[in-house]
Amino acid sequence: MKDETGAGAEGRDPEGRDPEAHDPEGREPGGRDPGLQPERTRLAWRRTTLSATVAGVLAAKQAIHDEVTAAGLVGAAGLVGAALCVLVWVGFLRVAHRRIVGLGTARPAALTPRAAVVAAGCTIALAAFAVAVVV
């Protein structure tokens, strides 16, 4: 919601500050990538988690807002909706956390398709929830 400008350029920039300058392999003798690719990827996951949090908060607010009864109490449907939002959000956090832990090694493995599908699935679940609320 707030960081797309930086994100687009950064995502498309595999070499960044050109780590090839000294070493044809692009790595320092310690096996560490001077381009800090794992760190940048980790921060990208954190930014995405933040975006998911904002969308989740909007969704939960919507669910509760729509179901406030005359007495000022939140209806059961609103609570269920909010709980679903929290569930989706926790699911996304779990994927992001596992990936962030996985990025802690010097030469991390590629993202698994399952993690990618789950992360995208959380986004789609929020959208489906929004459609249910809007219509």
């Binding site: 797309e4 994100a7 687009g8 950064e10 995502g11 498309r12 920039d13 595999p14 690719q37 794992p38 940048r40 990827t41 990208a44 996951w45 930014r47 995405t48 991390p108 590629a110 993202l111 990618a116």
Partner: peptide, 9 residues
Amino acid sequence: LANERTFLA
């Protein structure tokens, strides 16, 4: 990893 960051963006 660059591909992954594009995906995340």
